[in-house]
């Protein structure tokens, strides 16, 4: 009885893992398949579809997405650090309420935020900023709560005695911020910034309302294309952008991101 149960359990684990990996494996296989119809497992391989990516059709949205994601990561990084500094370090009155306010966008679905922004801009006659400026602003609204929360957590967790020791040794506030506080919260802030980059780069529910012809981000270009064709170029686009994201994570990780934090770097 127990053995049957154990077998069933392993079967369940295996099937769920198959369910999780199947679509990814299928996309990778399709991106390497020479046939243009995406069907059964291909037995020959080609990189032609990846070559097709190096045209304006895909490079332009890609570069726009990278530009927007970089700006969003930088802006929300700076704003998040500043907000966390005011709330946690300076402990201004009403800190709890202000923090709740800064995190409130998290409880509203992205599609609702997106439609609210596009309606608002249209009503007040600012349709002109649809496209890149609106995309950046909307993605900052999306990313800022995460970055603020991560920066605030790092600030709250770090050992205040270091700061007090520096102070009693005569360090000015500026010196302490520069040499103690900022280095201590760097891992938390960097993982927040990486996260901001990724959610901006992959975003669909906000971007879908804010793109303009000629100002289209990569995921939107991909779903527009998917509406009428499933060809393997799509597979190649998707795999390439996943590799790009992994490279970005690796890069931030090298600068001193999450694993330092996981291993207690912020303590």
């Amino acid at each position: 009885m127990n053995r049957v149960l154990a077998c069933l359990f392993w079967l369940a684990v295996g099937l769920v893992l198959l369910f999780i990996t199947l679509p990814l494996a299928v996309v990778v296989a399709a991106s390497l398949s020479p046939s243009s119809a995406v069907t059964f497992l291909p037995w020959e391989w080609t990189l032609d579809w990846y070559g097709a990516l190096l045209t304006d059709r895909w490079l332009q949205p890609f570069l726009l997405s990278v530009r927007i994601a970089t700006l969003v990561a930088a802006i929300s990084g700076v704003l998040g650090i500043l907000a966390a500094y005011a709330i946690v370090y300076e402990r201004i009155p009403g800190a709890t309420a202000i923090m709740a306010g800064l995190l409130s966008p998290l409880s509203v679905p992205q599609i609702v935020k997106g439609v609210a922004i596009v309606l608002f801009l249209s009503i007040i006659g600012l349709q002109g900023i649809l496209g890149t400026p609106a995309l950046i602003a909307a993605h900052v609204v999306l990313a800022l709560p995460f970055v603020t929360r991560m920066a605030a957590t790092s600030l709250a967790n770090f050992d205040g005695n270091l700061d007090r020791a520096a102070q009693s040794l005569g360090a000015t506030k500026r010196q302490r911020l520069q040499h103690i506080v900022l280095p201590m919260i760097k891992p938390g802030v960097l993982s927040g910034v990486t996260f901001a980059f990724i959610i901006s780069f992959n975003n669909i529910p906000l971007s879908v309302f804010l793109v303009r012809p000629g100002d289209t981000t990569l995921p939107i270009a991909v779903i527009n294309y998917l509406e009428y064709s499933l060809d393997p170029v799509m597979a190649a686009v998707n795999v390439a952008s996943m590799i790009f994201i992994l490279a970005v994570i690796f890069l931030f990780e090298k600068i001193g991101g999450f694993s330092a934090q996981l291993h207690g770097g912020s303590k």
């Binding site: 704003l79 500043l82 907000a83 306010g101 800064l102 609204v141």
Partner: peptide, 24 residues
């Protein structure tokens, strides 16, 4: 200075979240 550094976040969230939600 604490309020000054908090201002940009509040401004962005008011302009592109709170006001749009209210208007909608």
């Amino acid at each position: 200075s604490a309020y000054v550094v908090l201002a940009p976040s509040c401004l962005v969230l008011t302009m592109f979240f709170a006001l749009p939600m209210g208007v909608m």
